[in-house]
């Protein structure tokens, strides 16, 4: 009975995290774990992402 609801909730959560880019941090951690790198701090990671966004403006239409 609750299983479909839980799954739907997880789906929404997954979508929102992917959509906002929050999931990128999880991806990065997974990537580091896989290759045995020591990950940088989250603060540092998000700053790098913000700097990339600075150089690459997303156009918004009318």
């Amino acid at each position: 009975m609750t299983a479909p609801l839980t799954r739907a909730w997880q789906g929404v959560r997954w979508y929102l995290k992917e959509f906002t880019g929050e999931a990128r941090w999880d991806d990065y951690l997974a990537h580091c774990a896989e290759h045995g790198h020591t990950p940088m701090s989250r603060r540092e990671f998000e700053r790098k992402r913000a700097d990339a966004a600075e150089a690459n403006p997303m156009s918004r239409c009318c």
Binding site: K17, T20, G21, E22, R42, F45, E46, R47, A50
Partner: peptide
């Protein structure tokens, strides 16, 4: 997102 809790976009939004 920059200082308090970096990257927590859903919270901030």
């Amino acid at each position: 997102l920059r200082v308090l809790r970096p990257g927590r976009v859903l919270e901030a939004t």
